[in-house]
């Protein structure tokens, strides 16, 4: 286990090495939230508006803020590195060492997450605290605990999802554009922009089966108090199920893909 702790630590060192990049990535997550804030304000606060989508104005703003922070927290980023590894032969260095590639990237991903997680979790805590006072709702410690559990699982789930997508690099040489497209679609599907419930019952039902909304909307809904205890427990079970399934699919793709690896260059 020692080696993966070291990989975790190195990911952390890596994240701290480039301070400005880190700073800007934090700042960049604020803009979409601001845009959405004005958008929802315009929709809800126009004279004579009566909106019946299950969210009050305050709830919607709270959702937007929390989901914005959560989706930034679980987002990948390592898929470009994997693509580079496969395209240009950087994968060599992992293949010749007694280290498990998927686990390597997982622990390095976690390590790189630490600084942003500290900041984003503080942002979530402040948002929740302010909302609690403003809306006069109190969040129970049990829900906070559930939120943290689901957040960790969401992080793992999103990792597995992106790892599987990154494996596509074995079949198509350059997929960085594809990653860009997929990451936008995923943010929407995961409920990072607005809750999927807005689109009616069919979409809601489908989104409850697919893994995507369990990376962002599910933890957000726990924290904003929209879910019953039963729904939370079954949601966590589905998260676990998807993780197991995606780990399996990921390893399968890895094994198949490696047979195609040509270790180009040099």
């Amino acid at each position: 286990m020692n080696k993966y702790r070291c990989i975790f630590q190195m990911g952390l060192e890596y994240a701290l090495e480039y301070r400005f990049d880190f700073l800007f990535s934090m700042i960049s997550c604020i803009f979409p939230i601001i845009i959405q804030f004005f958008l929802w304000s315009a929709i809800y606060l126009q004279p004579g508006a009566s909106i019946d989508n299950g969210y009050t104005y305050e709830q919607m703003i709270l959702y937007t803020l929390t989901a914005g922070f959560v989706s930034k927290l679980v987002i990948g980023g390592f898929e470009y590195e994997i693509n580079e590894d496969i395209k240009n032969g950087g994968l060599n260095k992992y293949l010749i060492r007694p280290v498990h590639y998927m686990r390597y990237y997982f622990f390095s991903f976690l390590g790189k997450k630490v600084p942003s997680a500290v900041i984003l979790l503080s942002a979530v805590a402040i948002t929740t605290g302010v909302a609690g006072i403003a809306l006069k709702t109190a969040i129970s410690p049990v829900h906070i605990l559930f939120f943290l559990v689901s957040l960790v699982l969401a992080l793992i789930l999103n990792f597995c999802l992106m790892f599987c997508i990154a494996m596509y690099s074995f079949w198509v040489t350059d997929v960085s554009k594809l990653f860009g497209t997929i990451s936008i679609v995923l943010v929407v599907l995961s409920g990072g922009v607005f809750p999927m419930d807005l689109f009616g019952n069919v979409v809601r039902t489908v989104s409850h089966i697919l893994p995507f909304c369990y990376t962002t909307q599910f933890p957000t809904d726990i924290l904003t108090g929209r879910l019953s205890q039963n729904a939370i427990v079954s949601g966590i079970a589905i998260q676990l199920l998807w993780i197991v399934l995606l780990v399996f699919i990921g390893s399968l793709l890895w094994k198949k893909g490696l047979k195609r690896f040509i270790s180009a260059g040099g």
């Binding site: 070291c6 890596y14 060492r97």
Partner: peptide
């Protein structure tokens, strides 16, 4: 075994060499 490739970089580019060495130490126990 070990392989050194003159045209490929096996060290972690953005960190000092000693960090890469330390990681190797951990990986190889």
């Amino acid at each position: 075994f070990s392989i050194v490739m003159g045209q490929k970089n096996q060290l972690w580019w953005d960190l000092p060499a000693c960090d890469s060495f330390y990681l190797n130490k951990c990986i190889f126990d």
